[in-house]
Amino acid sequence: MQKIIIAEKIMKSFSVGNERHPVLKDVSVDINEGEFVSIMGPSGSGKSTLLYALSGMDHIDSGKVTFNGSDLSVFNDKELADIRRTKMGFIFQQPTLLKNLNILDNIILPAMRDNRKNNENIIKQAKAIMTRVGIAELEKRDITQVSGGQLQRAGICRALMSHPTIIFGDEPTGALNSKSAQEIMNIISEINAEGTAVMLVTHDPKVAARTERILFMRDGMIVSEMHLEKFTNTNMDDRTNKVTAKMREIGI
């Protein structure tokens, strides 16, 4: 299976006053084409920092991250932004949608930037994706007129507009109730089943249990890894119990 992301001995620290505090310590990890990966660990363990480093959203101090065979360090900020916009998708805990645009316009905005002459096709594509995730009737709504789960679906639509190689999610269900969280995970799982790689940061064992591989972090390092079989709705409790047992075993 082809590796789409290769991280080698990456280090990242942040300044607090006059001191540097390490957040990632010599982390190496590969992400395969079409893989479904989650990252778990206590607050401050480096989960989100690792996701931002692998996606080129944050610069690393040392080490190397390659995406589709290209070293991300050779690109400037504009080039990295172009890669993220055209090759990657992002889903955050709080969708970053613009208040002055309706749902449809928020979804198509990044794609319009790259294809100004294909407005009709972009809108058609967006509406098809909205239908798929169950928000077709919300296209003219303002973002203040829909629920958190519906906003997250809109964020997924926007992430899918560029047909990304990988989707990164930072606690994508963290602000949702259990029913909405399950619905969002169903959509993400379907996207992954169609061949798009997914990497999620989560604190929720039920979310991690839906993935194929779990990276457990503590103190800026990957301290353990867990591999699961392909998810089916019938083995949710068993998978969740295995994840929570592993968390207890390694003390996170």
Rank of each mutant, 00 (worst) to 15 (best):
Q2K: 15
V65P: 01
L97P: 03
P95H: 14
A154I: 07
V29G: 02
K99D: 13
G46P: 05
M130I: 06
K124S: 15
Q125F: 09
I214P: 02
M161H: 07
G17F: 10
M185I: 14
H227E: 13
M221Y: 11
A136Q: 13
H59A: 15
I107N: 01
E33Q: 10
Q94L: 11
V27P: 01
S43W: 10
P205V: 00
A126F: 06
M130P: 00
V198C: 04
I10S: 00
C157T: 01
N121V: 13
D82H: 07
R158N: 09
E229V: 12
S62N: 10
N186F: 12
D105I: 04
R158G: 03
V201F: 01
A175S: 13
G169Y: 02
D82P: 00
L24N: 01
D82R: 12
T232E: 11
S224D: 11
R153F: 11
H163W: 13
T244H: 03
A209F: 00
I188N: 02
A53E: 11
M185A: 08
F216P: 07
L54D: 05
H203F: 04
E190S: 15
E19T: 13
L51F: 06
T244L: 06
D61L: 04
A181S: 14
I107Y: 05
D58M: 11
N106P: 02
R239G: 07
M221N: 12
M161A: 04
G148S: 12
I129T: 05
D30K: 05
F67Q: 02
A245E: 13
A53N: 08
F216K: 00
V65G: 04
E139M: 13
G69S: 11
D238G: 05
L200M: 11
N18T: 08
V243L: 09
L98W: 10
G17S: 03
K127D: 09
S62A: 14
E194Y: 12
F36R: 00
F168S: 01
G251S: 05
I83A: 15
A126E: 10
N233V: 11
I103E: 07
V27W: 03
A154G: 03
L104P: 01
F231N: 02
D114I: 14
I252F: 08
I129F: 12
F216T: 06
N102V: 14
M1E: 12
P172R: 05
N118K: 15
S224I: 09
N115V: 09
S189L: 10
L104M: 08
P205A: 04
D58F: 11
L72M: 13
I143F: 09
R132I: 07
I135K: 04
E249H: 07
S38L: 04
F67K: 03
I123C: 12
L151M: 15
Q145F: 14
Q125V: 08
N177S: 04
T66E: 12
K78A: 10
G44Y: 15
I250D: 07
S178E: 08
E194A: 15
V27D: 00
Y52H: 12
N118L: 14
D71A: 08
G169V: 01
